[in-house]
């Protein structure tokens, strides 16, 4: 049942030695960092070269696209001044320049792939280190603007889909167990966002005093299996005691998605979560996880406008989103 891990992400925060942290950089220092790091990143000998987007100069829609693809944070999108992001063609690897720290390196993959993510981001870190000198102390490790990130400056996150825990009402207990393990639990787009579509982002809070490998291993061997176990047990309980209610949720979502004429992004996420559950419980033959992931992304506001090729206000988006879902899911035969 590891399909309830939607994605894995590993992030390293890095700062250039001999430079103030970003909030104390002058405008010219920020420009110096952005232009220097963008050149360095694009010139690295990676298997897949990276392209750089100057986030300051692109329009709001493009920034929103980057947020929806999890290539930049909301903070990075909304900040001011020289800043940008470099990412690989497959978008598994990205480096934000001038966010809270000078560099935020991340590897993002679908499903449970923490080691692969760590290997990839570590390789990027190794290559970068040949060109820049990081702020580092033997006592505190990699020095970061916020002391809560210092040490390994490693943040491991998994995006978990936990609809059954939500239905049984045991989600709070599970999240509390997570917090007892000193984990942070957030919504779909990270800090300060709500858990839409039963998606929860679970990440480590402590970064000092344990090695990178220990943090990754803990996630792989203890934390992720614990959440999978909670959710699996809730699903089994629901199937045993409230099967009709569970099936009703799945098939009701399926029909609404295939027939609605107007749909908000939030409702789409909510309903797509129910059919994700149905897919996982093998109730919806013909539907694939790839299609579901694609729809989850395409129904987001910026992607929807990109797809339609024009700017749309929220009510136009609602109609276009409903049509996209209706056409795509309506084409699948043989369900229900």
């Amino acid at each position: 049942m590891s399909d309830l891990v939607v994605s894995s992400r590993v992030r390293l925060a890095r700062n250039i030695g001999g430079m103030p942290f970003l909030s104390r950089c002058s405008d010219s220092q920020r420009s110096e960092l952005a232009s220097g790091l963008s050149q360095t990143l694009q010139g690295l000998a990676l298997a897949e070269p990276m392209q750089y987007i100057d986030v300051e100069s692109v329009d709001e829609l493009e920034r929103q696209m980057l947020v929806e693809r999890h290539l930049i944070s909301r903070n990075q999108a909304e900040a001011a001044g020289p800043r940008g992001v470099a990412f690989s063609t497959q978008e598994t690897l990205a480096a934000m320049v001038n966010e809270e720290d000078h560099l935020r390196l991340q590897a993002l993959r679908s499903g449970l792939q923490l080691e692969q993510c760590y290997d990839e981001v570590r390789h990027l870190d190794d290559l970068l280190e040949q060109h820049v000198s990081y702020a580092f102390s033997s006592r505190f490790g990699y020095l970061t603007a916020c002391p809560t990130n210092v040490g390994t400056a490693l943040r491991v996150s998994v995006m978990l889909h936990l609809p059954a825990l939500k239905m049984t009402g045991d989600i709070e207990k599970a999240l509390r167990a997570g917090r007892d393990m000193n984990l942070a639990v957030r919504g779909l787009y990270g800090e300060g966002t709500e858990a839409l579509g039963d998606l929860f982002q679970v990440s480590n809070q402590s970064t000092l005093g344990r090695s990178e490998e220990q943090i990754i291993t803990d996630f792989r061997d203890q934390i992720v299996p614990a959440f999978i176990d909670y959710e699996t047990r809730s699903r089994e309980l629901l199937l045993k005691t409230r099967r009709a209610a569970l099936e009703d949720k799945v098939f009701r979502a399926w029909s609404v998605l295939r027939s609605a004429r107007v749909m908000s992004a939030e409702e789409a996420l909510y309903l797509l979560s129910h059919i994700r559950l149905g897919l996982s419980l093998q109730m919806l033959p013909g539907l694939t996880i790839e299609l579901l992931n694609q729809l989850s992304l395409l129904t987001q506001p910026a992607h929807l406008q990109q797809l339609s090729g024009k700017r749309m206000n929220p009510s136009e988006r609602g109609e276009y989103r409903a049509k996209l879902l209706r056409d795509t899911l309506g084409a699948i035969k043989g369900v229900g």
Partner: peptide, 13 residues
């Protein structure tokens, strides 16, 4: 913030 730790034990550049 770091569960009692005050010494880095991870990677070193």
């Amino acid at each position: 913030a770091h569960e009692g730790a005050s010494q880095h034990v991870g990677r070193v550049p």
